[in-house]
Nucleic acid binder design. Structure first.
Length: 291
DNA sequence: CTGACTTCC
DNA sequence: GGAAGTCAG
């Protein structure tokens, strides 16, 4: 739920229906219903929890790109994604090898700058994935989609290979423990410290070096049903990690925060498909990443 | 494409 | 030692 706006997330008809069912249930069982756990959300949708920035086709700095493998919001002026959203589950995992096929995203509108691999060469910054290669290795095509440079940001090498990698691996551990993990990752602000020191942009100003990378993991026990609910007991892990070499001196658990704090940082409204009474609870809670 | 690097488990 | 994130040539 956004700190700035309390919005109606469900059409009147849906609410009327829900109220009707609740009344009917109460009448049958003779007790007051417990707090609603929510509406069903699709286990296979990369945008199941909502579109955090209301990305679409009108705003060039909040431009929606939707692929089977992930959904992202792109900023023309920053030359980077604002956020990428995807679901991590066993159907996306397999034996495909890392394609290493870093390449410009030519699906961007005509006239927009599309980053090239050479923009990163000898800059002291890694080509860091938002949606990781290893979260999409069921097929070579799925894996190659993560190497489109619209899914890549200039990332301090130690950040990428140490602390951020460990967050990614934690997400895959949660999956292997029997969960589907709904993930949103993004890059905020400007100015980071790579191998060669501080920089605000690459490619002559066309690619912003973000100041932090953040990530939200929503952990949903796997079921056979095509849908799932998010309740006040659902685990939500949020991190925000400065884009510096030194950030890797601490473990990722030193950077846990709340979704509320990330909403203040970004101005987005995360988990907007979750009922507001549930959002209020889970977005204020810090999950320290216990195994 | 290959070999090499670094870190974590 | 293996896995995962890369780099340079």
């Amino acid at each position: 739920m956004s700190v700035k706006s309390i919005q109606m997330h469900y059409p009147i008809k849906t609410i009327a229906l829900a109220v009707g069912i609740s009344i009917a249930l109460s009448a049958c069982v003779g007790i007051r219903p417990v707090a609603p756990s929510g509406t069903p959300m699709s286990r296979t949708s990369n945008l199941a929890l909502g579109n955090p920035s209301g990305a679409g086709s009108n705003d060039p700095n909040n431009y929606l790109i939707s692929r089977p493998q992930y959904v992202l919001s792109f900023s023309r002026d920053r030359g980077l994604a604002n956020w990428v959203s995807w679901v991590l589950s066993p159907v996306w995992k397999g034996d495909a090898r890392r394609t290493n096929d870093f390449r410009p995203d030519l699906s961007l509108p005509q006239g927009w700058y599309a980053a090239k691999p050479s923009d990163y060469t000898n800059t002291g910054f890694d080509r860091g994935h938002l949606c990781p290669s290893d979260d999409r290795d069921a097929t070579p095509e799925d894996n190659a989609a993560t190497f489109l440079l619209s899914n890549i940001v200039p990332q301090a090498p130690r950040h990428n290979r140490e602390v951020w990698k460990n967050v990614e691996e934690y997400g895959r551990q949660l999956m292997e423990m029997g969960n589907d993990v709904f993930i949103i990752a993004g890059a905020s602000g400007g100015g980071g410290t790579g191998q060669n020191g501080y920089a605000t942009s690459l490619a002559g100003g066309k690619l912003t070096v973000p100041a932090t990378l953040w990530k939200i993991l929503v952990v949903v026990p796997r079921g056979t049903d095509a849908t799932f609910m998010v309740t006040e007991n659902t685990r939500v892990i949020a991190v925000n990690i400065p884009n510096t070499q030194a950030a890797a001196d601490k473990p990722w658990r030193a950077y846990v925060t709340t979704v509320d704090a990330l909403e203040q940082l970004t101005g987005y409204d995360f988990l907007s498909n979750v009922p507001t009474n549930v959002q209020r609870i889970i977005e204020a809670r810090i999950d320290g990443g216990a195994s």
